[in-house]
Computed example of a mutant assay.
Amino acid sequence: MSAFRFFPAVALCAAFAFTPFGSARAAAACGSGSGSFDAWLADFKTEATAKGISQAAVTAGLSGVTFDQSVLTRDHSQKVFTQSFEEFSGRMIPPRLMRGSNMLKQYGSVLSRIEEAYGVPGEVLVAIWGLETDFGVNIGKFPTIRALATLAYDCRRADEFRAELMDALRIVERGDLSPTEMRGAWAGEIGQTQFMPSSWLKFAVDFDGNGRRDLMRSGPDVLASTANYLKGHGWQRGKDWEPGGPNFAVLQQWNKSDVYARTIAAFATQLSHAP
C-alpha cells in the first residue's frame, strides 16, 4: 500500500517480547545496529521452522540475509505527511490521467470480469494502480526479505515486521515468488499495488489462470487481488466511493492517510468521466 502508508505510532518493543524459546533468548527479540543481527536471525530461523515453515523455504529465504542500515535510515527519518489534498492530488492525478484512461480501455474486459466477481469498479482499481506504482513501472528495488528482516530486528515495530517476515517466507514456500523475485519498497510492500506480505497471502488471486498469484507481472492478478482486498475490507457493490459515501471508509483501509484516500477517490471519479 504505498510509501505514504501510515504505520502505527512508533513504540519500543518490550525487552522480553514473547518468544517461543524462553527468556534466555528474549534479548534477541529485537536489537539495534548490526552487531547482533546474525544471532537474532539464527533465532528467527528456528522460530520460523517451529511455526511450520519448511526448512527449504527458511533456507532459501534467509540464507545470506544481512542488515540494511539504509532501510532503518528511511524508517527513522519518515516525516509527518503535511501536503493538503489539493497539493497532493494536483501533483499526482494530472500526469497519470491519460495513462489511466488508456489502461481502463486496455484492460476493459478484464476489469468487467473483476467487477462482476468482486463488485469493485475498474476506475477505482486503475486509480490505485497508478498512484501506487505508476501502473507497475515503479514497484521498488529493495530486496523484500532483507528489508523486513532489518525492520523486524529493529525495536520500533518488531512484532509487526516479524509477522510480515514470516508471511514473506510463506509466500516463498507457497511458490508464488522466489526470494530473488521479491523486491519492492523499503518497508516491505511488494507488487504493482504494493501489498504487504500478510495482505498478499490473504488476498492475492490467480485471475489470469496460469497457476500463480503473480502481483509483480500479471495485470489481471494485480487488479483482481486489489479488488479482493477492497471487498475483504467491506466494499459495497454499486455504492459511492467519494468522501461521505459507504466505500470511502474502505479506501481509508487501503491507506490511513485521509489525503491519500481522497486522492484515490478523486482520481477514480475523474477516470469515470474520462472520454
Rank of each mutant, 00 (worst) to 15 (best):
S2C: 12
A3V: 13
F18L: 13
F21I: 07
F21N: 10
R25Q: 13
R25S: 14
G31K: 06
S34I: 06
F37Q: 04
F37P: 06
A39K: 09
W40L: 09
W40D: 08
W40Y: 15
L41T: 03
A42Y: 03
F44L: 08
F44P: 01
E47F: 00
E47D: 04
A48F: 02
A50M: 13
I53E: 00
Q55V: 08
Q55I: 01
A56I: 13
A56Y: 03
T59E: 06
T66I: 12
S70Y: 07
S77P: 06
E87G: 07
F88M: 03
F88E: 07
G90S: 03
R99C: 03
M103A: 11
Q106C: 01
Y107G: 01
R113K: 15
E115P: 02
Y118A: 12
P121N: 08
V124E: 00
L125K: 01
L125N: 01
A127W: 11
L131H: 09
E132D: 01
V137D: 10
N138C: 04
I139Y: 02
I139N: 06
P143I: 10
P143N: 10
L148A: 11
L148M: 11
L148Q: 13
A149C: 02
T150N: 06
R157L: 08
R157E: 07
E160R: 07
M166G: 09
R170N: 01
E173L: 05
G175V: 13
D176C: 11
D176T: 13
L177M: 13
E181Q: 15
M182W: 07
M182L: 14
R183I: 13
G184C: 04
E189M: 13
T193S: 08
S198T: 11
W200E: 05
K202N: 12
F203M: 11
V205F: 02
M216L: 15
R217S: 14
L223W: 05
A224F: 08
S225Y: 11
S225R: 09
L230C: 05
L230Y: 05
Q236W: 00
K239P: 02
P243D: 01
G244I: 07
G244Q: 10
P246I: 07
V250K: 00
V250Q: 00
Q252G: 10
D258Y: 13
I264S: 04
A268F: 02
L271Y: 05
